[in-house]
Write a protein that binds this DNA or RNA. Structure first.
Lengths: 254, 254
DNA sequence: CTTACACCTTTACGTAACGTCAATGTCAAG
DNA sequence: CTTGACATTGACGTTACGTAAAGGTGTAAG
């Protein structure tokens, strides 16, 4: 089946402007342009738009969505499984807000009292903790870890070659970490291998290497929910194991 | 308890910039300014911020939130009950998206097939139906009903006096409609009274009266989920009854 | 007492994800 | 062959803030 902008837009519930914008930023390009310059979308584009809308539903910004879905090693099925988990979390957050509304109603009726800070439970978005607020910002400023968070900004100045090497390294790290988790020993040879691979990845990402920064990042992986979600997806405890291995390798004391 | 910007922001999980912006647009003004020019918030402001954040969670734009919470006849308890309903709807929408992800996963595994348009169920935001798309736009352009939707734009050119008269009328309409729903007869005297009150309301809102436009708006009340949610909140069928009463009054044929 | 440091202020420009014209070309139907 | 719904590319507008600049305030520690 083939679609013009309007047909696709109507089907997906978005405007033609949105589709043109997605084309403009390279997020979703039409399968082809016909002789009159019209955008024509095919089956592949429909599926991709669906993925895009799933990510958008989870408040991922378009730049990040682009980095994710245009990544040559993008795995649609894994992404869908990820959506499932995130959506369940989102539903729990809504349940928390619903509970808050119920409590607030009860408090206005005098059936109970609420502390001021309780009035915002469920409405606060994340904010790992005060420590992260304080040191997280500091360490990011110091070592430019923001560049790691926002993949696109980091990748912008990177050659396609380096990008692929990084992807390969990332996959290897995953595999090696899966082996290491079985031993559960951060000093084991395989865990140290993972730490070393991660060091190589850092070097590519930052353009240089710094032990202290590496250790700081490792701790952040454990503290920051987004990172643990990434590393602990399949095997819980992976983030902590990687951190401990990096601590050993860099000679960092806890 | 009193709060400075940072304390309140930290408690509610928002930035100080956001609080300053809310002050700037008149959405949430501090209780007082101290001798050094610092913004000081009190208990009332905390509760108001909570209401604001509930509305924001439901994707209401700040301009509309302002129109709602600064309205002198704003009823906090009713608002909370409304939030409850909207949040339950939102949870259902998330459930729909979850179902979609599950189906999509099943289809990638070949356990079932999906039509292209099924791939977007739950992701489409509203779009009542094609009819609304077509005639809704037309009627809005013709009669300026967009001005009714976005209260602020409509109220901008309206004197405070008219605004209060409209609010009084709206309350009366509610009361009379509640009586009318008991008879269930759009031709009944009380239902016709409601239709007449609504006519007066329209006249104030639009600055003029037009039978055809009034009938069109009545149909929109039934078709548009936002309107039915408003009119049918307590008593289902109210929107349809009002429409039928207006049809009779204006001599419109279905 | 002053030095540090985390607060606070206003002013002002930047950003994301489109909405909304404007000006113009295309195509199927009557 | 005109009409009306479609398409195109600019280009400027909007919302809800982020972010930096330049400076005043409050308190704890040296």
């Amino acid at each position: 089946m083939e679609y013009t902008v309007q047909k696709l837009g109507r089907m997906a519930g978005i405007s033609t402007r949105t589709l043109r914008y997605y084309d403009e930023i390279g997020l979703l390009k039409p399968a082809r342009i016909n002789s009159s310059g019209y955008r024509i979308y095919g089956a592949k584009e429909v599926d991709r738009l669906q993925q895009i809308m799933f990510y958008r539903e989870l408040d991922v910004c378009l730049q990040d969505i682009k980095a994710i879905v245009t990544n040559p090693s993008f795995d649609g099925v894994k992404a869908l499984q990820g959506h499932l988990g995130e959506l369940l979390i989102k539903r729990e957050q809504i349940d928390a807000i619903i509970a808050n509304v119920r409590k607030t109603l009860a408090s206005t009726e005098g059936r109970m009292t609420m502390l001021d800070k309780e009035k915002f439970t469920g409405l606060k978005k994340k904010m790992v903790d005060e420590n992260e607020q304080k040191y997280g910002k500091e360490i990011r400023e110091k070592y430019g870890i923001d560049a790691v968070e926002h993949s696109n900004k980091a990748f912008k100045n990177m050659s396609q070659e380096n990008f692929e090497r990084m992807n390969n390294l990332a996959e290897k790290i995953h595999v090696v970490l899966a082996e290491a988790i079985a031993t559960a020993d951060p000093a084991s040879q395989v865990a140290q291998k993972a730490a070393d691979l991660h060091k190589q990845w850092i070097t590519l990402a930052w353009g240089h290497y710094d032990k202290e920064a590496h250790a700081g990042l490792a701790q952040m992986y454990v503290d920051d929910a987004r990172f643990t979600a990434y590393y602990d997806k399949k095997l819980p405890g992976t983030a902590a194991l990687l951190r401990d291995a990096i601590y050993i390798m860099t000679g960092t004391e806890k």
